[in-house]
Structure formats: structure tokens, C-alpha cells
Design a protein around this nucleic acid. Structure first.
Length: 477
RNA sequence: GGUCCCAUCGUCUAGUGGUUAGGACACCGGCCUUUCACGUCGGUAACAGGGGUUCAAGUCCCCUUGGGAUCACCA
């Protein structure tokens, strides 16, 4: 008998991306999300999105929306969620009460001031700034109205270790850990506890997260054990650094994923770049999301931190613009064009045709937009140096002759246009260099543009004629 | 400072005891060419240092050095 494919197996992998909504989706978070998503997709598992908003004061709706927007842009969809931790406070409370009842957690009445003083004193005496356990062995007592936090009772001996999918075996002496607070004075639970409860209740099998959580992991494992829950497999992804090898931050440039969209990057370039930062597959450089689902493996993620290299991102972006579908690119280009005061829907050459002439000349959508502007502008400003070189007394005659030839063509395609140029050159006994640059300037206003034949074809006869005549009028006085 | 992690070209990396240490970005040069680009061919450039283990070490072990992370009633 064959089992239905949909039937859930205990072996099904479940992963999650769990950002805290306190800012935009940054490239590091995006990469973590991507790795989780890829592994889930590759193993036909489940990918969950969970918003870690237990810090109610720092969490914002704008940040939540920014995360959704970033995920959507990158093409990372989720199977369950989004779940918001703030919706589950009663659940956490229940688990905490259970630990207290079992003696695995206890109330601590030390005040913030007392703790601060102890920390400073310990530091001053060269000791470790750990909680000293003042309330750890207090006899159980009735509440007398004094505020308290709840601390997790960490074993004083033994070793906690795990086999990290990326880093290998990592071990901590329990004696190095102190009794962390799992519930604040105001009754809300803290991060290290909540993640564990959520990962337990959401049945996570694998946790891929940033390197900066390595030090939290032993505490969390201890909590899993106290809860009697299975411990998931961990994979700690190395950090992303700036050019100076310091943790990537705004001063290195944009860190928000959406900022890259606004700077004219394609999501596939971003995904490709991010996945290759720390992961590799032989000598291959170009990967689509579909390739990655097949080829990605967390074991091949490197252990060391990587420097974010904007140049390589740019190269990838140029690659995807060059090889991208012109129809899609044209569509994506419209907002950039509108920002520049051009609306292709209001007339002018076909945008898809325009894009085709520019694809291999643009590294970003911004460059593509800038390069496309001249096609839609009525008034061109002409590059002075170019004009000085390309225009002389013979130019008007040559240009007019060219227009006549173009007008006589049965069809205005690149092949025929080239033919017309050849005839003109033969008849006048000139080389292309004596007329080409002037045509280019007349049509585009610049010396760097798509091919002359391409431009004529895209602009069409009427517009080509108009532009050449205007150039003669303006430049040959 | 304690703890934990990391270490191959400038950068991303391949390498799993025996390689002329490979690829990619960037950079430099040739070619192509109607401009700018694209493309293409070629070049410069790395095993942090020191000890072991071994016939043999970029690969294994130790130390040093250098980076990074973390030590909250943040996540």
C-alpha cells in the first residue's frame, strides 16, 4: 500500500525565519531567511514565518510590513504563519508556571539596581558579571507584593554541547552559564525562553540562524531539556561583514534589502549574491531559486564570516539584466522612468524594444532608465565635445541624404538600415566614421548609446527624421 | 577581561595528505567593434606565523598572532 504524499511524517523537516520587527529586513536577515527557505523547499519540509515581537515597545507595524515586503520581493514564501509571539503570552506563562512548580525556575527579588551594582563590583574585581544566585535557594514564599522576575535554574555542573550543521561540535561548561531571566517584572517572557517554547510548540526540527546566537544556544538547549522537549538541530550562519571586516552596518552602504531594489537591483541578483556569500557549489556562480532548491546544502556553508562585496552584486545584477526577459524588465522599468518624468504609456517607442537595445549596457535598473530617457525626450541636449568632433560643413548634406535613403527603404529593420548606410558611404566615398557619430548625436544627444541601426529601428522613420532635422537646425547654424 | 567561533589571491571561494593551489568579482593588457558596452583571450595576485604527526601537510594536532560574536528585566 502506498502512503499518500500529503501524509505528514515525523521526519518532515520544519524550519522557520524569526525576525524581530525592529527595523527593515537587512541583507543578513534575508540570507538567513533564504537558507531556511531553501532547506525547507529542498527537503519538501515546511517553512514558517514567525515575528518575534515580545519586546512590545521596540516592535512596529512598519517593520512587520517591511519584512513581508522584503520576503515577497525576494520570492520567499512561507507555508505557515506569520505568527506573532505577542499573541501567545498566555502560553508562555503556562510553561513558566510549570517550570516554577517543578523547581526548574524560581522567583528572584533582586532589583535592577542591586544587580547592576553586583555586576560592576564583579567586573571591577576581575570576576565574571554573572548573576550570583542570591535568590536561587530562597525557600518558597507567598507573594508579598514585591516585584520579582523568574529565573531559569541552570545546572551548575556538566557540559552542554551540540553538533552544529555548520560549525561542528560546540561545547559550553554549564558553570559558565548563569540563571537567566525568563520572565520580567511585568510578567512578560524574555527572548531566550520564548524562542524555545515556540520552536517546541511549532515542532521545529532545524534552526538556522545568525552566528550571534551561538552563545544563547546552550541556555536554550537546557530549557528544551527542562521542558522535556526534543532539541532541534542547529546551524549557525556566519555574519556578514563590511569592507573593513567590521559587522556590516549602514556606514558600509545600504543594508536594507528594499534599498537595493530602489537602487535598481533585481531580486534574482540579490538572491544569487546572498547565497554565494558563504556557500558554494564547485565553480558555479549563477544560480536561480529553482537551481538552488536542488543544489543548496547547509553543510556546504562556510564557517567564516564574509565580506559583503557590492561589486560582485553589481556584476550579478548586470548578468540578470543582460539575460533577463525584456518584457518583464520593461515592466519593472516603468516606475524608474516615471521617477525621471517619463511615462512610456504616453507615447514614444515601444518600451520592450527600447529595453532590448539597452540590456547589455546597464548594470542596474537605474542605468537602464537613464539610458532609456533619450528615446522619450522631445528636446535633447547635445554632448558638446561630441558635436565638435562629429559635425562639420559636410554633415547636413550627408544627414539629409541619409534620411532620404531611409525613407526609401521598404522596411525599417536593422539589416536594411545597414544597407542604406553602406550605399550612402559608397556614393559619397566616405567611411562610417564620417557620418555615424553625427547620427548618434542627433538621435541620442550623446556619444555613448545603443547601436545606430538599432536606435533608428526603435525610433521609427518619422522620429528619426525629426531628430536629424532638428539636429541640423540646432547644430549646423 | 571570561566564554565561544573563525583564518587559501584585495573580496567571495574550490581544495577533505601527494594539485603547476582551481574558479569568480575587481584590476591590468590583447582581440572584436559605428560610440558606450557585451563578448572573448591572456596577466598580476593567496595557503597568517611557529612547532609537531607523516615518506609526504593548504589539508591532521598544539601554540602564537590576528579577526569576530557574546556576556541585559533586547531579540
Amino acid at each position: 500500500m502506498i502512503k499518500a504524499a500529503k501524509e505528514p511524517f515525523m521526519s518532515e523537516v520544519r524550519l522557520r525565519f524569526a525576525p524581530s520587527p525592529t527595523g527593515y529586513l537587512h541583507v543578513g536577515g534575508a540570507r538567513t531567511a533564504l537558507f531556511n527557505w531553501l532547506l525547507a523547499r529542498k527537503q519538501h519540509g515546511t517553512f514558517v514565518l514567525r515575528i518575534e515581537d515580545t519586546d512590545v515597545t521596540r516592535s512596529t507595524q512598519e517593520s512587520v510590513d517591511a519584512i513581508f515586503e522584503g520576503m515577497k520581493w525576494l520570492g520567499l514564501d512561507w507555508d505557515e504563519g506569520p505568527f506573532f509571539q505577542s499573541d501567545y503570552f498566555p502560553v508562555y506563562k503556562e510553561y513558566i508556571d510549570r517550570l516554577v512548580a517543578e523547581g526548574k525556575a524560581y522567583k528572584c527579588y533582586c532589583t535592577v539596581e542591586e544587580l547592576e551594582a553586583k555586576r560592576e563590583k564583579a567586573l571591577k574585581e576581575g570576576g565574571k558579571p554573572k548573576y550570583d544566585g542570591t535568590c536561587r535557594d530562597l525557600p518558597p514564599q507567598e507573594d508579598d507584593g514585591r516585584p520579582y522576575v523568574i529565573r531559569f535554574r541552570t545546572p551548575k555542573e556538566g557540559v552542554t554541547s551540540w553538533n552544529d550543521l555548520i560549525k561542528g561540535k560546540v561545547s559550553f561548561e554549564n558553570a559558565e552559564l548563569d540563571d537567566l531571566i525568563i520572565q520580567r517584572t511585568d510578567g512578560t517572557p524574555t527572548y531566550n525562553f520564548v524562542v524555545v517554547v515556540d520552536d517546541v510548540t511549532m515542532r521545529m526540527t532545524t534552526v538556522i540562524r545568525g552566528d550571534d546566537h551561538v552563545n544563547n544556544t546552550p541556555r536554550q538547549i537546557l530549557i528544551y531539556e527542562a521542558l522535556g522537549a526534543p532539541v532541534p538541530v542547529f546551524a549557525h550562519v556566519p555574519m556578514i561583514l563590511g569592507a573593513d571586516k567590521a559587522r556590516l552596518s549602514k556606514r558600509h552602504g545600504a543594508t536594507s534589502v528594499m534599498a537595493y531594489r530602489d537602487m535598481g537591483f533585481l531580486p534574482e541578483a540579490m538572491v544569487n549574491y546572498l547565497v554565494r556569500l558563504g556557500w558554494s557549489y564547485g565553480d558555479e556562480e549563477i544560480f536561480s531559486l529553482t537551481d538552488l532548491i536542488e543544489k543548496f546544502s547547509i553543510e556546504n556553508v562556510g564557517r567564516s564570516a564574509g565580506v559583503f562585496n557590492p561589486d560582485k552584486l553589481l556584476w550579478l545584477n548586470a548578468h540578470y539584466i543582460k539575460t533577463g526577459d525584456p518584457v518583464r524588465l520593461a515592466d519593472l522599468l516603468i516606475p524608474f522612468l516615471k521617477e525621471r518624468g517619463v511615462d512610456p504609456a504616453q507615447g514614444g517607442p515601444d518600451l520592450v524594444a527600447v529595453v532590448k537595445t539597452l540590456q547589455e549596457r546597464a548594470k542596474t535598473m537605474l542605468e537602464l532608465a537613464d539610458g532609456a530617457l533619450f528615446y522619450y525626450r522631445d528636446e535633447l541636449s547635445y554632448d558638446e565635445q561630441g558635436v565638435a568632433k562629429a559635425f562639420n560643413a559636410d554633415t547636413p548634406g550627408l544627414l539629409n541624404a541619409l534620411v532620404e535613403k531611409l525613407a526609401a527603404l521598404p522596411a525599417l529593420d536593422a539589416g536594411q538600415i545597414e544597407q542604406a548606410f553602406k550605399e550612402l558611404m559608397a556614393e559619397k566615398g566616405i567611411k562610417l566614421g564620417q557620418v555615424g557619430p553625427a547620427v548618434r548625436l542627433s538621435l541620442s544627444g550623446t556619444t555613448a548609446s545603443p547601436g545606430i541601426y538599432e536606435m533608428i529601428e526603435v525610433l521609427g522613420l518619422a522620429e528619426t527624421k525629426k531628430r536629424i532635422e532638428r539636429a541640423i537646425a540646432v547644430l549646423c547654424r
